[in-house]
């Protein structure tokens, strides 16, 4: 998923090569044999389901195995008028809106700090990136417990700090308005390591003499941050935001495990509703139509990403 941006670079390079290196290659079928095993699996597990899903979206195909029949645009019409689907899409948008700013701003702050504190670099990187490699269910088991209203460690420290009284513990995951925030906080903790490493790598490519030159001109740290560092991180930020958008549209695991979409469907997201429609409601046809709506949305963001980053590299 994450490495799309590298792809475009390959194409021009490959295109330019033949003139320089006298082409030893003749057109033959040999190359196809190398590509074929991958392509066969790719056709079966990616191309075929893509079309099968489109076909199912026009049928009343069910998980129960009864013979499906063609129902035209009924599923699509139903999806457009389905309040629960809109609610799920809305929640996905809310999650994106809540989670993207902290995931961008905090990872820049972390990266700036770690970039300065280089001698402790390995420990800091380890601590901040470690959660990223942990399976989602481990993350949710730990955080569900941290969020326990009565006896959970979060509320305990909120009480110690005097932010809340022990008589009225904050309800986190079971509260309609706070549940999404709770999931967002967990997600930030879990995934920020990736963005942090992206920023750290970008920071380390900025040559030191730029700073030294500007220091001679009398620029202080704050000034350097705003007129050198942040502008040079623009591309990374664009990348982080686009990757975040795509990841947010695909969000499911945390909500499924922490809140099951509740309370009152306040954290039910797009994939979750597809899951419910298809695997709990047995409506493969309808779930396929819903999937396609999401498919198109993700596709649009991906195309934006593709254009944004291939142009800069050209």
């Amino acid at each position: 998923m994450t490495v799309h941006t590298e792809a475009p670079a390959a194409a021009p390079a490959a295109a330019e090569r033949p003139p320089r290196v006298p082409a030893p290659r003749r057109r033959s079928w040999t190359g196809l044999w190398f590509v074929l095993p991958f392509f066969a699996a790719y056709a079966l597990f990616l191309i075929w389901p893509t079309f099968l899903g489109l076909y199912y979206s026009f049928t009343d195909k069910s998980l129960t195995g009864r013979t499906p029949s063609w129902i035209g645009l009924d599923n699509w019409a139903e999806a457009l008028g389905d309040e629960r689907a809109w609610n799920a899409l809305g929640n996905t948008a809310v999650f994106t809106l809540y989670s993207t700013p902290p995931l961008v701003v905090l990872s820049i702050v972390f990266a700036l700090m770690v970039n300065r504190a280089r001698r402790a670099g390995w420990f800091l990187r380890l601590a901040i990136f470690a959660p990223y490699v942990i399976p989602v269910s481990v993350v949710t088991i730990i955080w569900t417990w941290i969020y326990q209203p009565d006896g959970g460690i979060l509320n305990h420290y909120l009480e110690v700090l005097g932010v809340q009284s022990p008589d009225a513990p904050t309800i986190w995951l079971q509260d309609e308005h706070r549940a999404m925030w709770a999931v967002v906080i967990t997600t930030v903790w879990w995934t920020i390591g990736f963005n942090f490493l992206l920023y750290l790598a970008a920071l380390q490519t900025i040559p030191q003499d730029v700073y030294e030159a500007s220091a001679i001109d009398g620029a202080n740290w704050w000034r350097q941050l705003w007129s050198i560092t942040l502008p040079l991180l623009k591309r990374t930020t664009a990348l982080v935001i686009v990757l975040q958008l795509i990841a947010s549209l695909r969000i499911f695991d945390q909500m499924y495990l922490m809140t099951s979409g509740g309370p009152n469907r306040a954290t039910e997201v797009a994939i979750h509703y597809i899951y419910i429609a298809g695997f709990e409601g047995y409506r493969i046809g309808y779930a396929s139509a819903l999937s396609y709506v999401l498919f198109v949305l993700i596709m649009i963001v991906s195309i934006v990403q593709f254009r944004l980053f291939s142009r800069k590299e050209a």
Partner: peptide
């Protein structure tokens, strides 16, 4: 590259 696996789970 642009096909999200999550949107294909049903088929």
């Amino acid at each position: 590259l642009m096909v999200p696996g999550e949107a294909l789970i049903v088929p």
